[in-house]
Write a protein that binds this DNA or RNA. Structure first.
Lengths: 157, 157
DNA sequence: CTTATAATGTCAATGCATTGATATATTCAC
DNA sequence: GTGAATATATCAATGCATTGACATTATAAG
């Protein structure tokens, strides 16, 4: 059927294969060791992402709708709901009615959630520093930018 | 308590934050859209990783022990067992006794698994090509190498 | 007012990933 | 042979992630 792939094609495939395999491994390691670094808090890396999104300056006051959180985090609604439920059970976030849209509920950091998020910065910074020892400042920026463009491709594929 | 972080430190933290957030998003997108690309086969990206590991030239004949697969894929034994169970249920892999070590069982591609893996190359290549449109060949290599060093740091942290 | 659309939530099934504890069989050192 | 270490498997709990289907409530269009 298919003729044997030319050399350039084989190499291209091999590079892509390794690239996505490393992405897979790095993501698993990030979640495993990142979550382990939070020992005292018992918070997962996925929960950081939510708290971090809600703690951003322009969001902190009024909160974010579930819809906006879904678009920001790129998660399914059903999955995000479960994560929010766990965060709400710990009283780190609150769901309040949006005064401007009765259908919408705004997700906000609670006072306790804000306090916890601040304390979490210490182990998070330690994790970041430890995980990035092999990369210079410039390389970290480079990696971020390459991942940003990979994300663009992955969204369209 | 802690004095306000110097500007350079804040920027460093922000870069790390974005880097790991993009890693998180890319990994989720890879699994979601990668698995979707396999529609006909109903195989997940994690299952590719296992089949791909077993299909490598030097492994294909004799297979790999569970221990070696764990070290290669960086997964927990309990998780890998579950993935292997699903692959075995589809008769894509076989577990055979290691003639050299009675404790060990070697995981091998079955004839059917080998055939399926070959057919899968087509949608996998299409997925790779579509996901990497934003990156040149050189950038793909660069990204792979940066992820490789990130992995080293993430393993040690 | 009626209808369509949008935002959210819920129920169910499946798969991936972790940790912890326990069990069995085999190999190897002594 | 005894005992330690190794390789694998299993059971249980928890969390993350997807899809699909259905329900509720509120907004917006006609």
């Amino acid at each position: 059927m298919t003729s044997p792939a030319p050399r350039a094609e084989r190499i291209r495939f091999e590079v892509a294969n390794r690239l996505f395999f490393r992405l897979y491994q790095c993501s698993n390691l990030m979640h495993k060791n990142g979550t382990r670094h939070m020992g005292d808090f018992g918070a997962t890396t996925q929960q950081w992402a939510v708290l971090g999104a809600l703690a951003r300056p322009l969001v902190h006051e009024k909160g974010m709708s579930v819809k906006d959180l879904i678009e920001f985090l790129l998660l399914s609604r059903q999955n995000l709901t479960a994560v929010l439920d766990r965060l709400e059970a710990r009283e780190w976030i609150e769901r309040v009615k949006d005064p401007e849209d009765g259908r919408s509920r705004l997700i906000r950091l609670s006072a306790e959630g804000n306090r916890v998020w601040t304390s979490m910065q210490v182990p998070i910074e330690a994790f970041y520093a430890g995980a990035l020892t092999e990369l210079s400042d410039a390389e970290q920026v480079q990696l971020y930018q390459l991942l940003d463009r990979l994300k663009t491709g992955l969204e369209a594929v």
